[in-house]
Design a protein around this nucleic acid. Structure first.
Length: 292
DNA sequence: GCCCAGGGCTATA
DNA sequence: TATAGCCATGGG
């Protein structure tokens, strides 16, 4: 079956979101101004092509079996967080200087949510102390090596392997994907995950889910927050990396120890989006140049 | 060839 | 509890 349709997407920048380095997954495969990716809908593999034109997204589906269109629409709306009221978020930023200055560097940037929560967990672990370019290449390598390939008219596309498959790998073969010493973290976490119902995390409150994730090898506070934000859409999560530390110190003079409490009090449920915009601002504005 | 990367783990005090 | 080294290795 092959179908296409459009969905409304105001205040959304697909390209900026795709390349914002969120650890839910690597960027989708660019193709003629649009992007291709394998998406499992109703347990059926389908190739999605997404392209932005003005305030609309043009979606094409190619699948071997019939798939309800509204399900695909739901998935797209979820992955790019299109139902999030971003105007209201901008109002929040405008009324909380100096946050008002970050908007112009990231207008239309939204969450890039996991299409596969396990992929998000492994991507987040792989991203620690690693460049965005490198961990996205590694994840793509893992997909090609151990994921399942599906043939479409545009080529073969691979799913992310299951926890059981990664749990069965030995350290050296996983290292061949380019994850370095994180290989053992990934294998050990996969072993634990294949025995734990990670879907339960979605229902849990933020603090409880955070503390459970910390038990996974390779998962510290920053990675746990990435998993909660990009994997489970816990909007209170505020992943703190070196860039966020520097920009928070620069803008608010908060030291690292008081950061979590400060964020909880000041940003509340906008914490995740504030982090997204601050990260972009810290890297793109050049405001930190010359600041240690 | 050098340096750094969206941190986490482990040993020490 | 707090801080100091150490970690693999691809990419710029």
């Amino acid at each position: 079956m092959q179908k296409d349709f459009k969905i409304k997407a105001k205040e959304f920048d697909l390209e900026a979101t795709m390349y914002s380095g969120q650890t839910s997954q690597p960027p989708w495969h660019p193709n003629g101004g649009g992007y291709n990716e394998l998406l499992t809908v109703n347990n059926k593999p389908s190739l999605i092509t997404i392209k932005q034109a003005d305030d609309k997204l043009h979606i094409t589906i190619e699948a071997h079996e019939k798939i309800p269109l509204y399900k695909v629409k739901e998935r797209i709306n979820h992955i790019f967080d299109l139902k999030f009221n971003i105007e209201e978020f901008y109002d929040f930023l405008y009324s909380h200087p100096p946050l008002d200055s970050v908007i112009d560097y990231s207008r239309g940037l939204r969450l890039f949510l996991a299409k596969d929560v396990f992929e998000c967990i492994i991507s987040s672990i792989a991203s620690a102390n690693c460049s965005i370019k490198r961990w996205t290449n590694a994840i793509n390598h893992i997909k090609r090596s151990w994921g399942r390939g599906y043939q479409f008219s545009k080529g073969i596309f691979y799913s992310f392997p299951t926890p059981t498959i990664l749990a069965g790998l030995d350290d050296n073969s996983l290292r061949s994907a380019g994850v370095g010493y994180r290989a053992s973290y990934i294998i050990r976490t996969s072993r634990m995950i294949s025995r734990i119902p990670i879907k339960d995390l979605k229902r849990m409150d933020y603090d409880r889910a955070f503390n459970i994730l910390l038990k996974l090898p390779g998962v510290g506070p920053k990675v746990a927050d990435c998993i909660l934000l990009y994997g489970f859409r816990k909007l209170e999560a505020f992943p703190v990396d070196v860039w966020i530390q520097r920009i928070m110190k620069h803008l608010f003079s908060v030291d690292d120890k008081k950061l979590r409490d400060f964020v909880k009090d000041e940003f509340n449920d906008y914490a995740g989006y504030v982090q997204l915009y601050l990260y972009n601002y810290a890297r793109k504005s050049g405001i930190l140049e010359g600041v240690q």
